[in-house]
């Protein structure tokens, strides 16, 4: 029995302080434990770190997403977590990534400058959609580059 696939999209503010190197070390730690944990429960997705913000897409069974998200919520390395979308999904956007990092394909461009502007329900839904698209495109670019 396969359970219904869900997708969760959120963004949050980085609370890691220090030099860019120190931040990057910490982000790598996050990625390592994400990949390790997500692989075990068949959760996939991507993480981006851009202009002081994290944005993350997580895909998997609802219970697994809820449990993973609860752990992420307790993490002091970020805060002001805003959930943009939590919906059923027909297929995975990041089927081969237990937790991909698309941070390096975008350089210093500020991808989500409008984040936090609109707060209405519709604005959030659109933003969730937007974040998901941007990250998937970056993921595809990343994979082609690696190939």
């Amino acid at each position: 029995m396969t359970s219904q696939l869900y997708r969760l999209v959120y963004h949050s503010r980085n609370f890691i302080s220090g030099t860019p190197e120190q931040v990057s070390v910490e982000v790598n730690k996050i990625l390592e434990s994400s990949q390790r944990n997500n692989l075990l429960i068949d959760v996939t997705g991507a993480l981006i770190f851009n202009a002081g913000m994290f944005a993350q897409v997580l895909e998997g069974a609802r219970n697994d997403l809820e449990a993973t998200f609860e752990r992420i919520q307790r993490d002091e390395r970020h805060g002001e977590v805003e959930i943009l979308a939590f919906d059923e999904a027909s297929s995975r956007g990041f089927p081969s990534w237990s937790m991909g990092f698309v941070g390096h394909s975008c350089g210093d461009k500020e991808l989500f400058t409008h984040i936090g502007e609109g707060s209405g329900f519709e604005a959030k839904r659109l933003e969730g959609e937007h974040v998901f698209r941007v990250m998937r495109d970056l993921a595809i670019a990343e994979e082609t580059r690696a190939a």
């Binding site: 969760l8 609802r62 809820e66 998200f69 609860e70 919520q73 307790r74 805060g79 959930i83 939590f86």
Partner: peptide, 17 residues
């Protein structure tokens, strides 16, 4: 301070935010 922050972060429970 930590409690105000942590307990005030959103929860996802049974599909409800």
């Amino acid at each position: 301070k930590r409690l105000v922050d942590l307990l005030g972060r959103s929860y996802i429970i049974d599909g409800n935010l």
